[in-house]
Design a protein around this nucleic acid. Structure first.
Lengths: 229, 229
DNA sequence: GAAAACGAACTTGTATACAAGTATACGCCC
DNA sequence: GGGCGTATACTTGTATACAAGTTCGTTTTC
């Protein structure tokens, strides 16, 4: 367990970045919402400078938009970005799962994945806890196949539709189905069955697109329908 | 053809970023070389502020390392980073090629790929021109399958071993072999043969690892042998 | 002569000041 | 009352000033 040096109001550009990023991903800062470098500086007890550095990184992440001399805004959920992010994540995680199934995983990794599934079953209707456990499950494989820090790459894409997941859980997405798919993926990796593992994961990841387009009806103000733009 | 507003000494954070990035990737700034925010500011005719913003982005790209209060340095070529980047790029481009082969490509894209191969044949021993044509070939597929800007994702990974390619061309890497592989890939996509396309691309991308480890012997000062660290 | 300690000149990180541009609100004119 | 114009209060982008820390050279002392 990592200990934060400053429990409530962390300062320093890196800490500010993490804080704002988490607030966007967890929808405490809503898509389209306006931000102010000055206000954020006041809130974190710093000047604009470290706030600005954090914002610039979030722009690269596609989570914030800066319109010069006009304002800084939390990015709306872009269907185009979701589509691209899903393709990238899917390609990456399918390769990871195939590698895991072909080469096999250490026992510790298997057990960690089991724990993640158990956490998910225990999460019930706590959307955030469910999401954290879901992340944990996927992360186990990325970390275990020995190609270095692959999770950060997945994460950079994932941010684009984490918000979709939070909006949709548990109303739209059938929670039991997701858990069942995780179980199928893990069992296939255990059995060293790469083909089945890939098919299970593929089905698992394809849900997000349907979810996003479904949300377009319920939350049109939060979503940028830019697919045919 | 895009026209740069300022031909020789572009200013503004974004332009500075592009300039420094290109100089690192093209090995005009050597791995391990020390940089100074002040000097760069003088060179671009700006203050440290926009230089700093550019540097922060390059840190995210893994091309620059900043050691607080100690200095800013061009990252050495990390074998670990090369291994990870190759995995990511491979996963992504294989998915792209499969998609292209299964769904087919518009005629314009096919012709553009043909042109890229011709450029490569014409490049001869001009390593930089060869590399640009190589990039162009790969980019055609990323742009053509309709999942948005996938090339920028490939590019962010590619930067890690573009320097390896430049170091190795044409001494280590057999140029004719690379061109032949491009031809095989394009022919397979044309024939809508996803399996062959994938196998050809896979062979094409796997060369980089052997190349990097080979360079470890000839350029030990530029390469960080951190695989077993 | 050698070693240790001090100091000056760098480094990056942050705070503040200024410049250029935009939106809004208020007042004036019709 | 409605519309237009101006002024003011914002915004981000850049420049400069300050703070804290590291490195390296010099000087002093033994």
């Amino acid at each position: 367990m990592r200990v934060r040096r400053t429990p409530t109001v962390p300062s320093g550009a890196a800490a500010i970045y993490e804080t704002i990023r988490a607030e966007i991903v967890h929808m405490r800062l809503m898509p389209g919402e306006r931000l102010s470098e000055n206000e954020l500086g006041l809130r974190f007890g710093t000047s604009r400078t470290p706030v600005r550095e954090a914002i610039l990184r979030l722009v690269d992440d596609g989570l914030i938009e800066v319109r010069p001399q006009r304002g800084t805004f939390v990015s709306r959920i872009s269907l185009k970005a979701v589509k691209r992010a899903r393709f990238v994540r899917s390609a990456l995680e399918l390769a990871i799962i195939r590698e895991a199934a072909e080469r096999g995983l250490p026992r510790a990794a298997i057990e960690e994945a089991e724990r993640a599934i158990a956490d998910q079953q225990a999460a019930g209707n706590d959307a955030r806890r469910f999401k954290d456990a879901d992340d944990h499950f996927h992360r186990v494989f990325a970390d275990a196949i020995g190609f270095g820090d692959l999770w950060s790459v997945v994460e950079s894409q994932k941010a684009q539709f984490d918000r979709v997941r939070l909006l949709s859980l548990p109303d739209v997405t059938p929670v039991a189905l997701l858990i069942g798919q995780h179980r199928a993926i893990l069992d296939a990796v255990r059995a060293r069955d790469a083909g089945t593992a890939e098919r299970s994961l593929s089905a698992h990841l394809s849900i997000i697109v349907e979810t996003a387009t479904a949300l377009l009806r319920t939350h049109p103000d939060l979503i940028d329908d830019d697919l045919n733009a």
